[in-house]
Measured scan of single mutants.
Amino acid sequence: TCPLCKTELNIGSKDPPNFNTCTECKNQVCNLCGFNPTPHLTEIQEWLCLNCQTQRA
């Protein structure tokens, strides 16, 4: 489950994953609780959960 919103993560499912791993804290959170803060920078593959995003802001 997502630590932030308690959504079930579909780990091991044949569906596309509905979660990602935060590059900062390494927690697995669902796609609604994390995002790529710099989608225009292709050389930085970063994906932050809302916790890390808030701490950085």
Rank of each mutant, 00 (worst) to 15 (best):
T1P: 05
T1K: 03
T1V: 06
T1E: 07
T1W: 03
T1N: 10
T1R: 05
T1I: 10
C2S: 01
C2Q: 00
C2L: 00
C2K: 01
C2P: 00
C2D: 02
P3I: 09
P3T: 10
P3F: 05
P3Y: 07
P3Q: 03
L4A: 13
L4Y: 08
L4H: 12
L4R: 09
L4S: 11
L4P: 01
L4G: 13
L4V: 04
L4W: 02
C5I: 00
C5L: 00
K6C: 04
K6T: 08
K6E: 09
K6Y: 06
K6A: 08
K6I: 08
T7R: 09
T7A: 09
T7Y: 04
T7C: 02
T7N: 11
E8V: 04
E8R: 05
E8F: 03
E8Q: 06
E8W: 02
E8D: 07
E8N: 03
L9V: 09
L9Q: 07
L9H: 05
L9W: 03
L9S: 10
L9Y: 06
L9E: 08
N10V: 05
N10W: 01
N10F: 08
I11G: 05
I11C: 07
I11K: 08
I11L: 05
I11W: 04
I11P: 14
I11Y: 13
G12Q: 04
G12W: 04
G12H: 06
G12N: 02
G12P: 12
G12F: 05
G12S: 10
G12Y: 07
S13D: 03
S13V: 03
S13E: 05
S13R: 05
S13C: 03
S13G: 02
S13F: 07
S13K: 15
S13N: 07
K14Y: 02
K14W: 02
K14S: 07
D15N: 12
D15A: 07
D15V: 11
P16A: 03
P16K: 05
P16Y: 09
P16D: 01
P16Q: 08
P17K: 14
P17H: 03
P17T: 03
P17Y: 02
N18L: 06
N18M: 01
N18H: 08
F19R: 05
F19L: 07
F19K: 01
F19V: 05
F19Q: 15
F19A: 08
N20I: 07
N20A: 11
N20K: 14
N20L: 10
N20T: 13
N20Q: 13
N20S: 09
T21I: 09
T21P: 06
T21Q: 06
T21M: 15
T21V: 13
C22N: 01
C22G: 01
C22K: 01
C22P: 00
C22F: 00
C22H: 02
C22M: 01
C22R: 03
C22Q: 01
T23Y: 12
T23K: 10
T23W: 13
T23E: 10
T23G: 14
T23C: 12
T23D: 12
T23M: 13
E24S: 07
E24C: 01
E24R: 11
E24L: 03
E24I: 08
C25I: 01
C25R: 01
C25P: 02
C25T: 02
C25E: 00
C25F: 01
K26T: 15
K26I: 11
K26G: 14
N27E: 11
N27G: 14
N27H: 10
N27R: 14
N27F: 03
N27Y: 03
N27S: 14
N27V: 15
N27L: 15
Q28F: 06
Q28M: 15
Q28A: 13
Q28S: 11
Q28V: 10
Q28N: 07
V29Y: 09
V29N: 06
V29S: 04
V29P: 02
V29W: 07
V29H: 08
V29I: 05
V29F: 05
V29E: 06
C30N: 02
C30S: 03
C30Q: 02
C30T: 02
C30G: 02
C30E: 02
C30H: 06
C30A: 02
C30F: 00
N31K: 14
N31T: 06
N31G: 12
N31W: 06
N31R: 11
N31A: 14
N31S: 13
N31L: 13
L32W: 11
L32A: 14
L32F: 11
L32N: 06
L32T: 10
L32Q: 15
L32S: 14
L32E: 15
L32G: 15
L32D: 10
L32M: 07
L32K: 15
C33K: 01
C33M: 01
G34I: 00
G34P: 02
G34W: 05
G34D: 09
G34R: 08
G34C: 11
G34M: 02
F35K: 15
F35V: 14
F35H: 15
F35P: 15
F35W: 04
F35R: 15
F35E: 15
F35I: 14
N36T: 04
N36P: 07
N36Y: 05
N36D: 08
N36R: 12
N36E: 14
N36A: 08
N36V: 13
N36M: 12
N36G: 12
N36K: 13
P37Q: 14
P37I: 12
P37T: 13
P37F: 04
P37R: 12
P37C: 12
P37M: 08
T38A: 13
T38N: 02
P39G: 05
P39D: 07
P39S: 13
P39N: 05
P39C: 07
P39R: 11
P39I: 11
P39M: 09
P39F: 12
P39K: 15
H40R: 13
H40S: 15
H40M: 11
H40E: 09
H40W: 05
H40F: 08
H40G: 13
L41S: 12
L41K: 15
L41H: 05
L41C: 11
L41A: 14
L41W: 07
T42Y: 04
T42E: 07
T42K: 09
T42I: 08
T42A: 13
T42S: 11
E43C: 04
E43H: 01
E43A: 10
E43Q: 06
E43P: 11
E43R: 14
E43F: 04
I44V: 11
I44A: 10
I44Q: 13
I44P: 14
I44E: 14
Q45A: 08
Q45H: 03
Q45P: 07
E46C: 04
E46V: 10
E46R: 08
E46I: 15
E46P: 06
E46W: 03
W47L: 13
W47H: 07
W47R: 13
W47M: 09
W47N: 03
W47P: 10
L48C: 15
L48H: 06
L48M: 04
L48K: 05
L48V: 06
L48R: 09
L48E: 07
L48G: 03
C49P: 03
C49T: 00
C49M: 00
C49A: 02
C49V: 01
C49E: 00
L50F: 05
L50T: 15
L50W: 05
L50I: 06
L50A: 14
N51D: 06
N51K: 09
N51T: 09
N51Y: 05
N51L: 03
C52H: 04
C52T: 01
C52V: 00
C52Y: 01
C52L: 00
C52N: 00
Q53N: 14
Q53I: 05
Q53S: 12
Q53V: 05
Q53P: 15
Q53C: 03
Q53H: 07
T54Q: 15
T54W: 03
T54N: 15
T54M: 02
